[in-house]
Design a protein around this nucleic acid. Structure first.
Length: 593
RNA sequence: GACUUUGUAGCUCAGUUGGAUAGAGCAACUGCCUUCUAAGCAGUAGGCCAUUGGUUCGAAUCCAAUCAGAGUCACCA
């Protein structure tokens, strides 16, 4: 239980008995500023309307009441309407022992709800890039955070394995591929297929300039470029189940999947359920019929089907073309139903870039109009694009930061940094490589996750990812450092899990313990707001507070046994919380580094 | 043009259910390794919280307008 929920009823009781007014609002405490005595602060201004007294007097009355009616408050002071509470050291000492003994500290029990988090959702015509890294890390972290808050979570990946873009790669491969394979080219399959996507675009542009010289205007070129028509023809043949086309499609997709699998493995993300658009792209037509029957959708003169979302403040939206074929939203309607039918999900999170904000508002509103029970649980986790200094990344033009390359670069950078410092010389080769991997991928994940997802971010490939300060490795280092102390304590056979004597807490000790007590509410809030960045900021602050303590006070050289025990508990608790917070972000922490 | 979103230190970002003197990291500068791991710690310097107005005991936070960047706007996914 958090301190807010513990103290709320007492504060409200106090208001009832002292001022004869009922306050139903739960009370929110905030952290006390460093320059004042105390750890938690209650802002008393809102209560002055009940007390009809000055803020100072009101604060005193509440402070007095809390001292007399709870057993955990040691002292209080009131400054300018801020009631600062000092809790008894006993309280913190007991709290610390619960953190040490509770293996689920910070997590919530099962809440009986199921949520699906759909993320990654790649196209199979090109390898993953930096933007996908943000998407994957976010999706995975949000899934972990929801799970920690009691949800049953299904991680889903909807693979966009069909469409004109794949046909472009296929066409270029047919024309210029010479039966190249990932083995013969010594390339990951996704990179090989991506190579032909770029080749197609180049050929298309060359063709366009040829045609321009022949006197075609831009519009004609756009419409009638023979290469584009060939690709469209390929798509038609695919839809008609042409065996030759299907076989090439299967072959190239299998290359891509083999490549993706490696990339996902290195990223450390997983999926419980794969959906393939080639299976789902015809879904949703039944829903269109249903919608027409219910009068939610209507036909236009050309027989296309629409919904009018004007009452919701939106526009009219096409849901089925005049020729009866689906559009994007038709498929998404179908897939939404499918997900619900298969898993009975209560919530559905879509991790998709912010250029699709409008699409998801429309989707949610349509499903509401169709009276879907799950409609209210649809949530679009919208995130900003990652830009390069040169502007937007474009796969077609090959101006992307490739995910595989970037991960390798960061790992290399970690290795170089580490060799310079020379302190890992006693590591085995294999362990060393694993460590570099943990640190490098950790640095990258933390870098992308510490920022609010809504914000677009700029990534400069020329400037390497930092390894000091507010970074993954800083937090990982703090963990390794604590583990080192704990290993030494183990060698000395120190038994510190319980401590019978009360200890007077030093400021730097108390700061860490107080911050540990915020872990639970942080994960709760992170789940409510789908915001891994809150967890990242929390764990960074924890590491900082711990490092301050570490530099100020010695653990193993402390001669007072009770104090030493307490500090060892503090170490153990902090290591546990760092590890568990980092795992929520999908980041591993090393035992040594 | 309409709607959505972002704007905080040189750079990257916290802080936004209204609360005390706006916080970190990087970069710069000073110190601290014979002491449990210096990927660390302590410190200096750096701010018209885009602008203007409003709401109130109190505004980076809420409201309105303006400026700047980004995105979307109906048959591409």
């Amino acid at each position: 239980m958090t301190l807010d929920t513990f103290l709320s009823p007492f504060v409200n009781e106090c208001i009832t008995s002292c001022f004869q007014v009922d306050n139903k609002e739960p009370v929110v405490l905030q952290a006390t500023r460093k320059e004042f005595e105390g750890s938690h602060t209650l802002v008393v201004f809102p209560f002055t309307k009940f007390s009809k007294k000055s803020p100072e007097e009101t604060g005193k009355i509440i402070g007095e009441y809390l001292i007399n009616h709870t057993s955990i408050i040691a002292n209080y002071n009131v400054i300018k309407g801020f009631l600062n509470l000092t809790l008894k050291d006993n309280y913190w000492q007991e709290f610390l022992e619960t953190v040490v003994s509770d293996s689920n500290f910070g997590r919530q029990p099962d809440n009986g709800l199921t949520v699906m988090v759909e993320y990654s959702s790649p196209n199979t015509n090109k390898p993953l890039h930096l933007g996908h890294l943000r998407n994957n890390f976010l999706g995975y972290a949000v899934a972990q955070i929801l799970e920690a808050n009691g949800y049953a979570v299904i991680k889903a990946n909807l693979i966009n394995d069909r469409g004109i873009h794949i046909c472009k790669s296929m066409l270029a491969y047919t024309k210029y591929g010479n039966n190249e394979t990932p083995e013969s080219a010594n390339m990951k399959g996704d990179h090989l297929v991506g190579k032909y996507y770029v080749i197609f675009d180049k050929a298309l542009k060359e063709k366009a300039s040829e045609l321009r010289e022949l006197g075609w205007n831009d519009e004609e070129i756009e419409k009638n470029n023979p290469l584009l028509q060939e690709a469209q023809d390929l798509l038609r043949r695919w839809e008609a189940n042409d065996p030759e086309v299907l076989s090439l499609w299967n072959k190239m997709n299998s290359w891509v999947y083999a490549g993706f699998e490696k990339t996902y493995k290195r990223m450390g993300v997983k999926f419980d359920k794969y959906y393939y658009e080639s299976d789902t792209y015809l879904l949703g037509k039944g829903i269109v019929e249903e919608g027409v029957a219910k009068g939610v959708f209507y036909h236009k003169e050309d027989n296309s089907v629409w919904i009018d979302l004007a009452p919701e403040g939106l526009d009219q939206k096409l849901v089925l073309r005049a020729d009866g074929t689906s559009v994007y939203i038709t498929q998404d309607m179908g897939t939404a139903d499918l997900k619900y039918q298969e898993f009975g999900i209560d919530k559905s999170v879509y991790v998709v870039g912010n250029e699709q904000d409008y699409h998801f508002v429309v989707l949610k509103n349509i499903m509401k109009r169709l009276d879907r029970v799950y409609a209210e649980g649809i949530y679009h986790l919208s995130y900003g694009m990652v830009d390069l200094p040169s502007g937007k990344m474009k796969s077609r033009e090959g101006t992307v930061v490739d995910a595989d390359d970037l991960m390798q670069e960061v790992v290399n950078e970690v290795a170089a940094y580490s060799k310079e410092s020379g302190k890992l010389d006693d590591f085995e080769e294999n362990d060393l490589n694993n460590l570099f991997e943990t640190l490098g991928i950790g640095a990258l994940k933390y870098y992308l996750l510490k920022v609010d997802p809504k914000k677009r971010m700029l990534f400069n490939p020329q400037e390497s990812i930092d390894l000091q300060g507010n970074t993954g490795p800083y937090i990982q280092y703090t963990h390794a450092r604590i583990k080192s102390v704990l290993r030494k304590a183990e060698q000395l056979n120190l038994d510190f899990l319980t401590n019978s004597n009360s200890v007077l807490l030093e400021d730097s000790e108390k700061d860490v313990i107080v911050w540990l007590s915020n872990f639970e509410s942080t994960i709760k809030q992170a789940a409510d707001e789908y915001a891994p960045s809150l967890v990242a900021n929390y764990v960074y602050e924890l590491a900082k507070l711990f490092n301050t303590f570490y530099n100020e006070l010695s653990v193993l050289k402390e001669t007072d046994t009770s104090k030493m025990k307490l500090r060892l508990q503090l170490c153990l608790a902090t290591a546990k919380v760092i590890k568990s917070a980092m795992l929520l972000l999908g980041i591993d922490v090393p035992e040594r580094m």
